[in-house]
């Protein structure tokens, strides 16, 4: 069994998610080779062939060239699994590679189950196992689903990788994240509002609870997208990753992107009408109640 792992390079750095791909290959018992559009000074500490394309020549985001580079490496290595992180890089690139090779892709894999690949479904409320057709398969791995331990120590065997062809998307540049007016990463207590609070007018109810706890107000993505709360309060993959002593999730169903941003909190309380909401998976205490009734009651007790 062979796995070809695709590294991700962003703003001049190799991202650590390559080691999660190594952990997945370890679970498969697969021999590892790698592809990276990067530079030789900054390569994965992993044993195996590394097909290295020059980021100066191909750029960090250049989907048609990156697709062709990965396909070129696939032809050299003949792997069973072609493995990407399920990230803005991986989900953009993987389907292009799968289509070019005309092989199955299984997205956001969270585990292996009886030889099949296990993925989330219906906003993480359900699971699905997927059986790809015989032959090669492209997979993207959910961030954090395959964890690695300890310092990596290997040394790759580097060979240069090149393709010809022109880019069909022009990369203009990065735009930095908006300045934060609150730094949630330093907060000891965070009380976050989710879509379950119903409307913007109910934000003060959650803000009052945050104040009663002496904590900061956080929010899930839909609440920020709807303009109820500033982006600087957003917790999750595209917001801030937090690990306070206490995290109180109010009316948050628990989409994976939100869980990824808060599941390392020391103690998690979730308030939700839906007993089956995925937030219950990470909560130390799940209060099954209408948050608009419960939050004011709790605020009053804390103040009293």
């Amino acid at each position: 069994m062979k796995a070809l792992l695709i590294g991700e390079y962003r703003e001049g750095k190799l991202l650590d998610n390559i080691y999660e791909l190594v952990a997945f290959a370890g679970k498969l018992g697969a021999d590892v080779s790698m592809v990276l559009v990067g530079d030789a000074a900054n390569v994965p500490k992993v044993n195996g062939n590394l097909h290295l394309a020059d980021v100066g020549k191909y750029g960090e985001y250049n989907p048609s060239a990156h697709r062709d580079l990965v396909v070129e490496a696939v032809q050299k290595e003949n792997p069973d699994y072609i493995v990407f992180p399920h990230s803005s890089y991986g989900w953009d690139l993987a389907p292009r590679v799968a289509a070019k090779l005309k092989v199955a892709q299984v997205s956001e894999v969270v585990g292996l189950n009886d030889g099949n690949l296990e993925v989330g479904s219906c906003n993480a409320k359900m699971r699905r196992t997927v059986k790809p057709a015989a032959g090669k398969v492209v997979v993207t791995l959910q961030a954090g689903a395959f964890s690695y331990q300890g310092e990596q120590q290997g040394t790759p065997t580097i060979s240069p990788l090149e393709v010809t062809g022109s880019a069909d998307v022009e990369f203009i540049g990065y735009e930095p994240a908006e300045a934060k007016d609150v730094d949630l990463t330093k907060a000891e207590i965070i009380v976050s509002a989710g879509r379950g609070i119903g409307k913007k007018d109910n934000i003060p109810v959650i803000a009052a609870l945050a104040k009663a706890f002496g904590g900061e107000l956080g929010a899930s993505r839909p609440v920020v997208d709807a303009g109820w709360v500033e982006h600087s309060h957003q917790v999750g993959t595209t917001g801030q990753t937090v690990s306070p002593k206490l995290y109180v999730a109010c009316g948050i169903s628990g989409a994976i992107q939100h869980l990824a941003g808060m599941k390392k909190s020391d103690f998690i309380v979730a308030i939700n009408k839906d007993k089956d909401a995925p937030i219950g998976e990470v909560a130390d205490v799940l209060i099954v109640a209408d948050v608009l009734q419960f939050a004011p009651a709790l605020t009053a007790k804390l103040q009293g």
Binding site: R10, E11, Y61, S87, S88, D92, D168, V169, E170, F171, I172, G173, Y174, E175, P176, A177, E178, H231, T237, T238, G239
Partner: peptide
């Protein structure tokens, strides 16, 4: 504008 992780965005142009 593509949304990347951590609030960073990637700006691209396509014909």
């Amino acid at each position: 504008k593509r949304e990347l992780e951590g609030g960073v965005k990637g700006v691209v142009r396509l014909k």
